[in-house]
């Protein structure tokens, strides 16, 4: 995506026929990109942050994908002791699998059952279990999902193609800066003979947000 060419007031001297997109790409960064670089460099110059910290944190962010959450879910499905520990303390159980938490957040794992379907949201902004799922999708951060998930969750779920029968309770969990949630989806029928890896391959990001169930045909490609 190309930034709109913010404030390129000096471009008129290069002729008015250049397309804005072309100038945006060839003419360097936009206003907010420059602001980010300037803030970062000032903080590094004043030794408030280390020179390599941003690059290292980008590597951490890149290493977090829904595959980590899927590994947690699959382990909980095959190991009842782990499942109990996971539901008691999500963060400690994830750390047991080598998934580090790079922030101060608590993780509460909530389990979908035959009686309860869970959904996570952050109505105030975009809090999300990033250490185990990576960064949230845009729709999770936008108004329609944030506004409506808490007031009409069944209608929201239906827009994802998920119809929850009336006799199943829907619980919506509103995340905060300090407390994040992860849905432990139901293990689908017909997976009795599956290995832990095969199970993990069925578990997608959206199943752990709670907007869709795990099914046999919507999994990620097996690594």
């Amino acid at each position: 995506m190309t930034q709109p060419a913010h404030g390129h007031d000096d471009d008129h001297e290069h002729g008015p026929e250049h397309s804005l997109a072309e100038i945006g790409q060839a003419g360097g960064p936009g206003y907010y990109d420059i602001m980010e670089t300037a803030l970062r460099e000032l903080l590094i110059e004043r030794q408030l942050i280390g020179p390599d910290e941003i690059r290292r944190q980008i590597e951490v962010l890149d290493s977090r994908t829904p595959a980590l959450g899927a590994k947690v879910v699959a382990r909980a499905w095959v190991d009842p002791g782990f499942r109990t520990r996971l539901l008691a303390n999500g963060r400690a159980a994830c750390e047991e699998l080598g998934i580090s938490f790079y922030d101060d957040t608590a993780l509460i794992v909530i389990e979908n059952t035959d009686a309860v379907h869970n959904l996570i949201v952050c109505t105030l902004c975009s809090c999300y279990p990033r250490p185990v799922l990576g960064l949230p999708p845009d729709w999770y951060k936008l108004k329609p999902y944030r506004a409506r998930a808490v007031s009409e969750p069944r209608a929201v779920l239906a827009e994802f193609g998920t119809i929850i029968p009336d006799d199943i309770e829907v619980r919506v969990h509103d995340s905060t800066a300090m407390v994040r949630y992860l849905v432990l989806p139901k293990r689908p029928a017909g997976t009795e003979g599956y290995s832990e890896e095969q199970l993990a391959a069925l578990v997608t990001r959206d199943t752990m947000i709670g907007v869709v169930p795990v099914t046999l045909d919507t999994g990620r490609t097996t690594p």
Binding site: P137, P144, A147, R148, V156, E159
Partner: peptide, 23 residues
Amino acid sequence: DIGGLPADPIRRVDHELEPWEKR
């Protein structure tokens, strides 16, 4: 503070972060 307000249908949009956004 938009929780509970009426809003449009969900559009399942997403985008790959720009390098500056990731930084």
